[in-house]
Simulated assay, not measured.
Amino acid sequence: MSTTGIPVERTALLVCDLQNDFLHPNGAYGRAGQTAPEILALPERVKPLADLLRSRGGWVISTNFTLVPGRGGEPMISPHLKTLRPFLAKGDFKPGSWGHRTVDALQPVDVEVEKVAYSAFYMSRLEWVLAKCGVERLLVCGIVTNGGVASTVRDAHVREFDAILLEDGTAAFSREVHEVSVAALRPICRVATVARMMVEVASS
């Protein structure tokens, strides 16, 4: 797939936060009117790559933002997030719930990993899962480019994964923020399109 010689079997599409509570009209963000056309378009855009990668022996691994239920089922929300998204309520992003799940368009994923912060590596089992699957290369897609995606890519870089950012497989709540974030990530990872990676996976 690239000059590094990593085979497709050691490659994973890492899906960041493409969950019902973020994207579906009946999810937490949809009910609050917090969305963007670029975000809603992502599942269908990356689905062909997910299907192709899986058919060639690669992995599709989803990292799902999680609000851990506390006393009385009330979600444990950081003060920063509570200020930013005051509409988040009991039951949103609850482990095992419909809202917490990866969107139907990308099912079935091979492994789902709960995440509690911007980076999918922070205090999660992601690194353990990747090791068990033998994954060395990550094709990163999902939301948002300036938040969970950027943090996860940077953490993948310091852990010496071969991370490739899918420029048109990621999105933010504004096009400008997305483009600035992609530019900031270019020094630490390769940036490619979904179409380019489809070609590379198909020819591997």
Rank of each mutant, 00 (worst) to 15 (best):
M1T: 13
A12I: 00
V15H: 07
C16T: 11
C16S: 08
N20L: 09
N20I: 07
F22S: 06
L23W: 04
H24A: 09
N26E: 15
Y29T: 07
G30N: 05
R31S: 15
A32K: 04
P37E: 03
E38D: 11
A41N: 07
L42S: 01
P43T: 00
V46S: 00
V46A: 00
L53I: 07
R54D: 15
R56T: 06
R56D: 13
G58S: 02
W59Y: 08
V60H: 08
V60M: 10
N64E: 13
T66N: 09
L67R: 12
P69R: 09
G70L: 05
G70P: 06
G72M: 05
G73Y: 08
G73K: 09
G73D: 11
E74L: 12
M76I: 14
M76T: 14
P79A: 05
H80W: 10
H80A: 13
L84P: 10
L84S: 12
P86L: 01
P86N: 02
G91Y: 09
F93C: 04
K94D: 14
G96F: 01
S97T: 04
W98D: 01
G99L: 05
G99K: 11
H100A: 15
V103T: 02
D104E: 08
A105P: 07
Y122N: 08
Y122F: 11
R125W: 14
R125D: 12
E127C: 11
W128R: 12
C133K: 13
V135E: 03
R137S: 00
R137A: 02
C141T: 05
C141P: 01
I143S: 15
V144R: 14
T145P: 02
T145D: 00
G147E: 07
G148W: 07
V149F: 02
V149C: 03
A150L: 10
A150D: 13
S151R: 08
S151K: 08
S151M: 07
T152R: 09
R154M: 08
D155L: 12
D155C: 09
A156V: 01
D162M: 07
A163R: 10
I164A: 05
L165K: 03
L165G: 00
L165S: 02
L166H: 08
D168F: 02
G169N: 05
A171Y: 06
A172K: 12
F173Q: 12
E176L: 14
H178Q: 03
E179R: 15
E179L: 13
A184V: 06
L185P: 00
L185M: 02
R186D: 01
P187C: 03
C189S: 04
C189H: 03
R190T: 10
V191C: 03
V191M: 01
A192T: 06
M197D: 06
M198L: 11
V201M: 07
A202Q: 15
